[in-house]
Amino acid sequence: MKKRIGKILTIIISIIVGIIFISPFYLVLTNSFKTQRGIFTNVVGLPGKFATLKNYGEAFVQLDFIHSCINSLLITVISVIIIVIFTSMAGWMLVRTKSKFSTFLFFLFAAAMLVPFQAVMLPLIKIMGSAHLLNPVGLIFMYLGFGTSLSIILYHGFIKGIPMEIEEAAVIDGCNKFQVFWYVVFPLLKPITVTVSILNTMWIWNDFLLPQLVINETRWHTIPLKMFYFFGQYSKKWHLALAGLVIAMIPIIVFYFFAQKHIVKGIAQGSIK
């Protein structure tokens, strides 16, 4: 009887938690089909006589979606590739180099995750401005810095499970360190590389604050930056903003659904090993 009651309570709590998590998506989706008047008339109701598809067409144009999507794609893809290359090599060297200094470096990267972005935001922008790097190149460089800690920790945990004998055999066959990593080790890192790529892609694609501080030229604005222009000083175009938000979510949701199975797999393997 107690097991049955516990099971029922678990189901009820799961349903309540599910509703809480789904409710923001419901509000965004339903209100994206309403006019501005329809949103203020009934926020939680389904689109009725105020339903319209014009919001999506207008939001698509105002977002300059194709151009801003290309900007977001370029910055995200280049940043993720650079993060994967540098952090995979760093994680490998920290695991294979047995010294107090390598241990110190690893814990230093782990401790860096505790530093909030807001604490270094203004000094960082001042330094990057003096170096004339307030542009997409500087933004990618900063993404490398902020994405390094978590990526190295994930790679570090995964690489510990790779037998050293595989690398020793490659060295005996005549491989140098560079060849050992790229031809032997890196192919074995595929599960965790996919996980690192997904986590960083979702973070960089949705990031607003750092691009707003760094990118000054309109031609390089990403989708999150374009979304900001729906909110003026004296008026807020909620109907267009919500429609634009749905459009902006579609690429990353499609990407996530195709890659979601690798997230849990990679994190689980990295944490266990």
Rank of each mutant, 00 (worst) to 15 (best):
L73I: 01
N42D: 13
F65H: 12
V61A: 11
Q260N: 09
N216Y: 12
T30W: 05
A111E: 09
I253Q: 01
V80A: 06
D173G: 07
I85F: 13
K261E: 09
C69N: 09
V185I: 15
S72G: 07
H156F: 15
Q179Y: 08
G147A: 06
L63Q: 04
L189Q: 08
P187W: 12
L242F: 12
G18R: 07
P116D: 13
R37W: 08
Q179K: 14
S23D: 02
L188F: 03
F178Y: 14
Y26L: 15
G232E: 04
M113C: 08
A59K: 00
G38S: 01
F146T: 08
I215Q: 09
I166W: 14
M202L: 13
G270W: 06
P163R: 10
G174Y: 07
Y234E: 10
V196Q: 04
S130Q: 05
L134F: 02
T30I: 09
L27F: 13
G244T: 03
S68C: 03
L133N: 08
M128N: 08
I272E: 11
F186Q: 04
K236G: 07
I83L: 07
G147R: 06
I83Q: 03
I20A: 11
A112I: 00
S88V: 14
E165Y: 11
I83V: 11
A90S: 12
T41V: 11
T103I: 06
S151D: 05
F40G: 00
V264R: 07
G145D: 12
